[in-house]
Design a protein around this nucleic acid. Sequence first.
DNA 1: CTTGCATGCATACAGCCTGTATGTTTATGA
DNA 2: TCATAAACATACAGGCTGTATGCATGCAAG
Lengths: 192, 192
Amino acid sequence: MQEKSTRTPNADRRAMMRKKLMDAARSLFVEKGFAATSTPEIVKSAQVTRGALYHHFEDKEDLFRAVVVAEAKELRQAIEVATKGMIDDPLGTGSKGYFEAMSIQGRAQLLLIDGPAVLGIQEMDQIDAGGGRAALRTGLATANSDLSDEELEAVTKVLSAGYDRAALAIAQGEAAKPYEQAMAALVRATIS
Amino acid sequence: MQEKSTRTPNADRRAMMRKKLMDAARSLFVEKGFAATSTPEIVKSAQVTRGALYHHFEDKEDLFRAVVVAEAKELRQAIEVATKGMIDDPLGTGSKGYFEAMSIQGRAQLLLIDGPAVLGIQEMDQIDAGGGRAALRTGLATANSDLSDEELEAVTKVLSAGYDRAALAIAQGEAAKPYEQAMAALVRATIS
DNA sequence: CTTGCATGCATACAGCCTGTATGTTTATGA
DNA sequence: TCATAAACATACAGGCTGTATGCATGCAAG
């Protein structure tokens, strides 16, 4: 019998290793923040060596970027599932979906606090592209046509910031209902 | 004649040294971010040694905290001056004052991006206490009495986040007017 | 005024972290 | 099967942080 029959294709090894590193890194980034998390810690938690990390990622920031991008993707998918087929009241449904999706442990911290600080606002905006903000904009645009592009963009950003702040507060343990009501009222006021 | 007549009281030396360090640190923190700014860089820019830095501040984070606290204080004072005696339309005046005060180079980055990431949301909330948010809350409360405390708090935070996001966009070079209009509309909708 | 002490500041050092260079193993495909 | 490339591990150089130590300067009591 063959002892060493553990032949693993490169594609699989790559995917598994990246996942191991990103999972370990996510936990530590959420727990201690980006700066306070060292690469020795990460690889120890992932039970690999720093060689693996620097083979798959350019540097620590690049690993953080990968974690954030994956998180944003999961967020988009969760919202998409929650609002699937909801043609009536897309804004209300999207809101609830967003709050639920953002209640995942550490997600708000990663996407709203550490992400902008480490990667910059510009890149975070780009990573979030197609996320909740785009849906919000189209929702506002269809419900309220008499807004210039500039105004629509401004209102969208500002309301989106409100959603983010609400999600952050909820993630920190505050009650969700007042924030849901507040955002609903603001959106209603905007489109009417 | 006395050569070494440069006798400086300790209180003055302390104040001057702290200012020199905080000014140099502020520039570099704004330019490169907290993590990417090293203490050797800071003291070189301030033309002192690391000994002085670690004599006056516990560590790099403590220096950052001092910079942020001073920035928040200046912001409060600027808003206070702008809204002094404006009893009619305090919300509108406060809004304009806030946007102007937040347009100071690097202020939005320090208070809205790096601050929360380095010091945490909790501490930043505390540092901002008595800032624009408090004024906004009282403004909303007087104009709209039929809100529970919980709802008032939520609406305040969410609108305040909108103001912050708007200030950030303006600080990054976007036109101010659409944001002023957007926030004005939201506030108007909230209090009526 | 001077003398003991506290404060302000500079220098030196230890430990850690990051990123790279180099070496070794494992898969690929010809 | 064999050459090559990819995956991963180890070793190293440089820089940074925070602390310990030493000197200078202001302070306050006598």
